[in-house]
Design a protein around this nucleic acid. Structure first.
Lengths: 350, 350
DNA sequence: GTGAAAGCGCTAACAC
DNA sequence: GTGTTAGCGCTTTCAC
């Protein structure tokens, strides 16, 4: 009812006794119109509760201020939660910056690219936010080749120099996973642990290797590299975490486990708990996770938290700069430091 | 680069040697144009890789086929996860039905309403999807009053008859929580449990009371109403779940706990585990949760799963019907039956 | 500084 | 059945 017939520029112009153009100017280049007229126009706008029709504007300017985001595939795992939190934050930050987020789905990278093409040809989407970049990701190349503004949550994982040599730079924001596990490991070292195992994913995943590196670095810095510590890899999942923990805990001197994810850590925790009942004599084993998912809080697990809010803010910034055509906005990136949330699983037992 | 200058209707028309209108007809009312011409036009469309500009169409038709959804506030709890899964499913279903989902944020219901107004006046959003309806929800009233198509995930919780008497109907889809806890309780009864406590939220939340009712019903059906069973209420959360479980387990005959949420169940599980070590003589206690969040799978917790995919499909259907102006689409609702996922916490111990 | 004219790409209405 | 005309609401260009 209320929207039966909204006022247009013409309505406002008539009301303020100026031309449509002047009203448009008041809105888009206020400095160009005399304070007096401007005042009058603004009053008319307020009185009529006029709001510009963004669709019409979009048709004219070819700018929508809408971002496209492929709904991250439902991992249904525990860690998939991080992307959901990111989406929350992104929506927030985008809105603050005058942008909107539009969702779409696609089954794989190729379908996603087809959808980019479709959305660009069809709607006026101004740019895209990618999540979960991985090695050999074809999406960034396509977007770069087609001059589409975009930013990825996740750095490019391809080895520079190897491959087809056509590597390209692009705007990205990522969490410094290495710094995260480094912090976790240092925390354990500070607490007196000397034999700290790492439970990780199989080698080859950029994210996993990055987190692994942080653990190794911290140990190396402490002069504990290599000799005394073990590390196992497997797929993500609670059961796998338990299995890996059991393998690591075969050695009696291992007193701490740095895990590549909260899922793994959850499994490790179960293994540790079992060990505590079966072998009460053994020293208590500390555990850290990664992602600080709600479960971590629930089971009192120390974990590395990803400040997705910061990631989202930077992502929006980088994207907005590209949309506005600000130069040198394309090749900018931000690596954001995660922080450790210390909980019960790494506190000394009473 | 590729999008430098996309073909328009006119391009296609020239190419196929017909008028723009005919091309438009081929796209929107194919049956009205001669097969021959249609063929020619379609060929031209394919050759030029023409795709209609939805913005222009939208300006003309006043239809965007875009749905607005307020990003559910980050509950950061374990159960908040359900809404995220719903969002995934909704995006999927919407896309399948030719609709898109656009996100926005708002701090509270009033802000959300302001955003409705803004989005309606400004962009061409066709309808909204609400989540987490609650008692005294002002949003549905506003939308209904303004003839805006919408559907809510969550039924209206206001008591019919009480209040201001201006109750209104609207399209909604919801999970039958009562059926869920009923199924969980029956499952436990079938397994031989006779004293089954319910761990719930404080009275007064529609969702919580609904789930409570299912548990009670199942017990009543079994002739076990009232006398032998306890039930406690508190806020949602793992710690609260543990506390409530401890209170319930004071009675030695209680052998099963039906929980209003996975968070509560997680706490209950911890309490049960503790009890098992401190009092090995006591009968093992079964536990069920609600929502079937990833944690449930991780800790092998039997839980009631919400088929959010079905919810999303029905929601899109109801919304699409309203947008298309199909009559009697406004007052339609769907109550969807959840299902029980049986896991270790309700299987007889070896 | 302000106004008039043109046009973004499309579809609704009406000729033919 | 097909083509022509008009216009959705806005901004860009160019007179004045």
């Amino acid at each position: 009812m209320a929207q039966e017939s909204r006022p247009t520029l013409a309505t406002v112009a008539a009301h303020a006794k100026v031309s449509r153009q002047t009203v448009s100017n008041v809105l888009n280049s206020p400095e160009v119109v005399l304070p007096d007229t401007r005042e009058r126009v603004l009053r008319a706008i307020a009185e009529l509760d006029y709001r510009p029709n963004v669709v019409a504007r979009q048709l004219r300017t070819r700018r929508s201020y809408v971002l496209g985001l492929r709904m991250p595939p439902t991992t249904d795992g525990i860690s998939g939660q991080v992307l959901d939190r990111f989406l929350h934050a992104l929506t927030d930050e985008a809105q603050r910056a005058g942008l909107r987020v539009m969702l779409f789905t696609a089954d794989d990278d190729e379908a996603e690219i087809r959808e980019y093409e479709n959305l660009r040809a069809t709607t006026g989407i101004d740019g895209f936010v990618l999540t979960a970049t991985h090695e050999g990701d074809p999406r960034t190349r396509w977007l770069a080749d087609h001059d589409v503004p975009f930013v990825s949550f996740g750095r490019p994982w391809d080895d520079a120099g190897t491959g087809d040599g056509t590597s390209h730079e692009h705007a990205w924001v990522d969490i410094d996973g290495r710094a995260g596990t480094r912090a976790a490991t240092r925390h354990l070292l500070d607490a007196g642990h000397r034999h700290i195992a790492f439970l990780g994913w199989p080698e080859g995943s950029g994210v996993g290797d990055d987190r692994h590196a942080g653990w190794y670095e911290a140990l190396a810095d402490a002069g504990l590299a290599g000799d005394a510590v073990v590390h196992r890899t497997m797929d993500d999942g609670v059961a796998q975490g338990a299995a890996a923990a059991n393998r690591a805990l075969v050695r009696d001197d291992v007193t701490a486990l740095v895990c590549v994810s909260d899922s793994i850590a959850l499994g490790a925790l179960a293994a540790v708990r079992e060990l505590a009942t079966s072998r009460p004599d053994r020293a208590p084993v500390a555990v850290t996770g990664f992602d600080d998912t709600p479960v971590a809080g629930a089971v009192d697990l120390t974990s590395v938290a990803q400040p997705v809010g910061d990631v989202a803010a930077r992502a929006v910034e980088l994207l907005r700069a590209q949309i506005d055509g600000r130069p040198d906005a394309v090749n900018r990136q931000a690596l954001i430091e995660p922080y450790l949330v210390v909980r019960g699983t790494t506190r000394a037992p009473r």
